[in-house]
Design a protein around this nucleic acid. Sequence first.
DNA 1: ACATGTGAACTGCTTCACAGCG
DNA 2: CGCTGTGAAGCAGTTCACATGT
Lengths: 208, 208
Amino acid sequence: MRRIAESTVRRLSLYLSFLEEIEAQGVTTTSSDDLAHLGGTTSAQVRKDLSFFGSFGKRGLGYSVPELSSRLRAILGLGRQWRVCIIGAGRIGAALTGYAGFVERGFIVSGVYDSDPAKIGTDWGDLIVADEANLEQDIAANNYQIAVLAVPADAAQKLADRVVRAGIKGILNFAPVQLAVPPHVALRAVNMAMELEALTFAITNNGA
Amino acid sequence: MRRIAESTVRRLSLYLSFLEEIEAQGVTTTSSDDLAHLGGTTSAQVRKDLSFFGSFGKRGLGYSVPELSSRLRAILGLGRQWRVCIIGAGRIGAALTGYAGFVERGFIVSGVYDSDPAKIGTDWGDLIVADEANLEQDIAANNYQIAVLAVPADAAQKLADRVVRAGIKGILNFAPVQLAVPPHVALRAVNMAMELEALTFAITNNGA
DNA sequence: ACATGTGAACTGCTTCACAGCG
DNA sequence: CGCTGTGAAGCAGTTCACATGT
């Protein structure tokens, strides 16, 4: 398959969340125009995005909401359940462990790890904080495919190396460092200070 | 000033964090090549990014670390202190309130708001959770410029409208909805489910 | 000699406009 | 007729290559 732009994938996620919303309301048909109005894009963009993966609409009519949403779920790889572990039992780890949006999308968080003896064994409702020393064997045993790194910056690369060696397929990094991973491992980063800096840049340069 | 690409701003943040790191190590000079090696970009890209704002290097020599980092701070609007309030005293709100990365960059989080009577008045270490009903008057009184939305999706737009009317300059949205704000307000969103979906898309389409 | 700064070439995402089909 | 699907055009961001200055 041709390489798909980052921006396209983000929009597909957006379309899906809109489709799920109107599907719950009982709407059965939609159009590229409807999908465009959310997310501030254009109908041509919507059709182009979808065209990379096939033709899902009917000319003159639009798209079937259940069909398109099921297609998008398949495209995004959401047809299966994903097993996720969270590394770092600090505040960010806690926020992510309980995040409802993950479950809704089929992400199953079933492990939280830390190296701090004071945290290991703590009961977090559904889960008990496990010892980071067992990370490799647990990834293999529980078949985790995705690891979320919620650790301090200076610990992140070492842990990334460990989960990669243990066979993880994707890493979502919340530590404020640029990680290096081999090309066969998917990597995405959320850097909250960087987001705030993008805001201050925009405010400073918008004549505010 | 000419419009600066989103991607350029993100890279400037990256360069700055690298500069601060080596500055702490006592390094006084660096080059576009050094800056490129972190963040997996190219030296030409680094020079182009900087060229939008001026000429900060010396030909044949490179860049002075303290000078370039101070220039970048100015460009990103970090020369001043920013007053930030967090709306939503759930787990994400808690994680953000204590996030060390914010303080390091001059962001002062001095208010947390919620509408739940069970949470209002709770002591969160430095702060006490305040009543969301007082939001408008507090934004004015405390001169908050940035609001972080860490509330459920269905509450987010209404709160965005309120903080905009109260004069906020920028919003960082953690709720999984697309917000609409007037053009003079800066908006950035972090959608964690979307990040995970970008991962599953990459994993699914990388032959993993 | 060396690394910056920058116009020019290139690549790739977005927008346009219309043919195609229900 | 209406809305999709798509080649072509347009535009923005990246890369190249070299002139420039130290």
